[in-house]
Amino acid sequence: MQRGVISRAIGLSPKTLARRAKAGRFNTVESDRLVALVALFGEALALFDYDKAGAVEWMTSPVRGLGSKRPIDMLGTRVETKAVFDFIGQLELGILV
């Protein structure tokens, strides 16, 4: 995933992301969003049988079942993040088509 996509997902400018990564320190909100992004990517990978390109494409495209929002844009709140994980769970169970 490109650094710009990651920085937008966790609410940082690319320069700030680079500084934080170099220092190895993020604040609590940034850390929470980064952990959520990694977890979401892991779930998307599993959903797409570990096809990285497919997982990234899904995460960065509008999804009808999520109100036409991009899953990566839903990391700003715990409620939206949970909605994405719940949606993936429903897809995995075959509840949604």
Rank of each mutant, 00 (worst) to 15 (best):
residue 1 M to T: 00
residue 1 M to I: 05
residue 2 Q to G: 06
residue 3 R to P: 09
residue 3 R to Y: 13
residue 7 S to C: 04
residue 13 S to A: 00
residue 15 K to F: 15
residue 15 K to Q: 15
residue 17 L to E: 04
residue 18 A to I: 00
residue 19 R to T: 06
residue 24 G to I: 01
residue 25 R to T: 07
residue 26 F to D: 09
residue 29 V to L: 15
residue 29 V to H: 11
residue 29 V to T: 15
residue 30 E to G: 01
residue 31 S to E: 13
residue 32 D to M: 12
residue 32 D to Y: 12
residue 39 A to G: 01
residue 39 A to I: 09
residue 40 L to C: 00
residue 40 L to Y: 01
residue 42 G to K: 04
residue 42 G to D: 03
residue 42 G to M: 07
residue 43 E to G: 07
residue 45 L to T: 02
residue 45 L to P: 08
residue 45 L to C: 06
residue 46 A to I: 07
residue 47 L to D: 08
residue 48 F to A: 06
residue 49 D to L: 12
residue 50 Y to V: 09
residue 51 D to S: 03
residue 52 K to C: 13
residue 53 A to C: 10
residue 56 V to D: 11
residue 56 V to N: 02
residue 56 V to A: 03
residue 57 E to S: 08
residue 58 W to Q: 06
residue 58 W to F: 01
residue 58 W to K: 06
residue 59 M to R: 01
residue 59 M to A: 07
residue 59 M to L: 10
residue 60 T to I: 07
residue 60 T to K: 04
residue 61 S to D: 04
residue 62 P to G: 10
residue 65 G to W: 10
residue 66 L to Y: 03
residue 67 G to M: 12
residue 67 G to R: 04
residue 67 G to L: 14
residue 67 G to N: 13
residue 68 S to C: 05
residue 69 K to I: 09
residue 70 R to D: 05
residue 70 R to K: 05
residue 70 R to F: 06
residue 72 I to N: 06
residue 74 M to H: 02
residue 75 L to F: 05
residue 75 L to S: 06
residue 76 G to V: 00
residue 77 T to D: 04
residue 77 T to N: 04
residue 78 R to K: 09
residue 80 E to T: 05
residue 80 E to C: 04
residue 81 T to S: 11
residue 82 K to R: 12
residue 83 A to S: 15
residue 84 V to K: 03
residue 86 D to H: 14
residue 86 D to R: 11
residue 86 D to V: 13
residue 87 F to W: 13
residue 89 G to E: 07
residue 90 Q to W: 09
residue 90 Q to D: 11
residue 90 Q to R: 13
residue 91 L to G: 14
residue 91 L to V: 15
residue 92 E to A: 15
residue 94 G to H: 15
residue 97 V to T: 11
residue 97 V to R: 14
